[in-house]
């Protein structure tokens, strides 16, 4: 085995985990976590608002700390790890991307709904011009057939993405569906293929292994499952599993265990588990970051959050449409009082 690790992991707790802490990360939390992840030799650490650059809003939740300060803090303690940022065109802008690049972010992950890749062209191209490594991130991949996903992945490759991810934002994909998708991309694309899972159906690890088996080499994980919904593939567990499979990640397992226990667990408002609502996300195919918003709407309108989530799934509501959660909750409450 060469020094070059076959599988490169991106730790997303400081971005996807932003949802789980309602975007309340502090500079101290991010600094401590990023510093330790850097020591554990994690190749990429993603830092942004949960909905990407510019995500701080009434729609998604206001950040307690400006994400640019968090990015700057992470960059200042990472001499090994590269800091990545997420950008959703329509929410964040090229201006936001340039600011992040100026602060030292080295990787731009440009995310669109699985059918809307063409809105990412300008952002991927700009990231390239800024000298960043580029990732195209196809969210809610369960909502489109493989042929459509492939067509959109090719678009992102043509814009200059160095990697294209299959993103299971709802944690709704089953292992055979992951395999089919990764395999199709692996056969048709010349760039790296990545996989980002959520654990709502307890399949994040299984799906990740299925993706790796079919040739995915870029994998997302969140330490202690600190991500939206039931969290992502648990990074420290993944490192251990891959190690037992003889696949090198270059990441120090014991250090990761300690970070999870000593630094990240205290950040979590409550331990990550698959409960009724997060299971519903995966079952109904709903964007994982809707979870806490649905809980709040359920309280406000005295309806079941499971009913809200199921209805959102039926209506094919996609990532970013958090306003629909209130809208649907209000409708359900009207229907029950009639």
């Amino acid at each position: 085995m060469s020094n070059q690790s076959k599988i490169k992991i991106t730790e997303v707790a400081l971005r996807d985990g932003s949802h789980a802490v309602s975007h309340q990360y502090t500079v101290d939390q991010v600094t401590a976590t990023a510093k330790a992840l850097n020591k554990a030799q994690v190749p990429y650490i993603e830092v942004s608002h949960g909905d990407g650059l510019g995500g701080s809003s009434l729609q998604y939740g206001l950040s307690k700390t400006n994400e640019l300060e968090l990015i700057e803090a992470a960059v200042s303690v990472a001499d090994f790890s590269k800091i990545a940022v997420l950008l959703l065109p329509g929410i964040g802008t090229i201006g936001d991307l340039k600011e992040a690049a100026n602060l030292g972010a080295k990787m731009a992950r440009v995310a669109t709904h699985v059918t809307e890749a063409d809105v990412s062209k300008q952002h991927i191209q700009t990231a390239k011009e800024l000298g960043m490594e580029t990732v195209g991130f196809l969210m809610m991949s369960h909502m489109a057939p493989t042929e459509k996903l492939l067509e959109q992945a090719k678009l992102m490759e043509s814009y200059g993405a160095d990697t294209v991810y299959v993103v299971d934002s709802a944690g709704a994909l089953l292992p055979h569906q992951v395999k089919e998708r990764i395999k199709a991309l692996r056969q048709a694309l010349n760039v790296n293929i990545g996989f980002h899972g959520h654990n709502n159906l307890s399949l994040a690890m299984g799906n990740t292994l299925a993706a790796i088996e079919e040739g995915a080499t870029r994998i997302d994980g969140s330490i202690r499952c600190l991500g939206a919904g039931a969290g992502n593939t648990q990074t420290e567990v993944l490192v251990a599993v891959l190690d037992k499979m003889g696949i090198q990640t270059g990441i120090d397992l014991y250090k990761m265990m300690d970070i999870a226990e000593d630094i990240v667990a205290p950040i979590l408002p409550k331990p990550q588990e698959i409960n009724r609502d997060s299971l519903t996300l995966g079952y109904a195919g709903v964007y994982s970051s809707f979870l806490l918003h649905a809980n709040r709407a359920a309280k406000k309108f005295s309806v079941e959050s499971r009913d809200i989530l199921v209805e959102l799934g039926k209506r094919e509501i996609i990532g970013g449409q958090e306003d629909m959660i209130f809208d649907v909750a209000a409708e359900l409450s009207k229907a029950t009082t009639k």
């Binding site: 009434l58 729609q59 329509g90 709904h113 809307e116 094919e316 509501i317 970013g320 449409q321």
Partner: peptide
Amino acid sequence: GKAIIILNPAEPPIMMRDTVHAI
């Protein structure tokens, strides 16, 4: 001011919706 735009591919196509949040 801040503005966000979402493109939803559902079929049949959805009506335009706008949400205004003001403090």
